[in-house]
Design a binder for these strands. Structure first.
Lengths: 155, 155
DNA sequence: CGGCGATAGATGCAAATGCATCTAAATTGG
DNA sequence: CCAATTTAGATGCATTTGCATCTATCGCCG
């Protein structure tokens, strides 16, 4: 019940989130304006990136949706656009008649790598000078921990 | 050139950002689906929130734009909507004929508080169990440091 | 098996967003 | 002091997004 200096847990959590959120906004601002994203929007690149990390090469649409801050319908149409541009290919899921599997085309993989290289350079130029290697590792640890503690995503 | 275990600074920065970004997406997903944002979109609330923190009560539109991940034109229209709903009031900047000053109306302040209370509860329920108080403080320190190291925002 | 709620995705439609551009006011440079 | 450039914000228009809904398939339970 001490007055000075002590902060309520609720307030601490809120301020922590606020800080995380603003940092994300500020970094994203810079990244978006970089030349890496002249050919593709960030969300579109993110889909290609996620697909490029997928071990099997194929990924379900709904799993993809967990990574992206987009509604299901928006992702559906985003993927439609990517397919129209020849960057991804779709295939009905063999074991589930409702599902759709996605993978990169060769062209999609090429573009992902091209943008990715530049993107990584931009990130490094922003984050590298801001935090020491130890701080970056700690930040990664904390954000990983936060994310993994959240449980399954809503809906 | 050692192979095992050592990671390049570039890669570390990229993975750190990736982790921060995904955590933000995951938390934001949960928050968006909460009942706090039935009356107002997150970006709209964010504007009310920022205005509520503003010491003078008045804030320039372009300053507001730095906080939000929105283009200038989108923010312009977002504010237009908020004004139409009676949540904010506009006034030409006295010292700069181009500028617009914004402040909350009483109704806007009321709504911000109402949503804010719920929002803070949601945040606390997500972040509180995930990280210790010390970890939250460290996360806040690191994200603050990151943001403040970025320099002025583009455009 | 057969019906029934749940889940995956697609689609119509209204709303929000971004890009390019425009206007007006401030700043700069001669 | 005036012309040229820059900056703040608004607006036309095409694209993107989300909500609600629809269809089809899956999984469950009688």
């Amino acid at each position: 019940m001490a007055a000075g200096g002590s902060e309520s847990p609720v307030r601490l959590a809120a301020e922590t989130w606020e800080s995380l959120f603003r940092a994300q906004v500020a970094v994203m601002r810079k990244l978006q304006s970089g030349r890496a994203f002249r050919k593709l929007a960030v969300n579109e690149y993110d889909v290609l990136f996620t697909l490029s990390r997928c071990p099997s090469g194929w990924l379900r649409l709904n799993e993809l949706n967990d990574n992206v801050l987009l509604s299901q319908s928006s992702l559906s149409r985003l993927v439609e656009r990517l397919e129209k541009r020849g960057l991804v290919a779709r295939m009905p899921a063999p074991d589930d008649g409702r599902g759709i599997l996605l993978k990169l085309t060769d062209e999609g993989r090429e573009l992902q790598k091209e943008i990715g290289r530049e993107h990584v350079r931009d990130i490094s130029a922003l984050v590298g000078p801001a935090l020491t290697a130890a701080e970056q590792k700690e930040l990664m640890r904390l954000t990983d921990k936060l994310r993994s503690s959240l449980g399954p995503l809503p809906k």
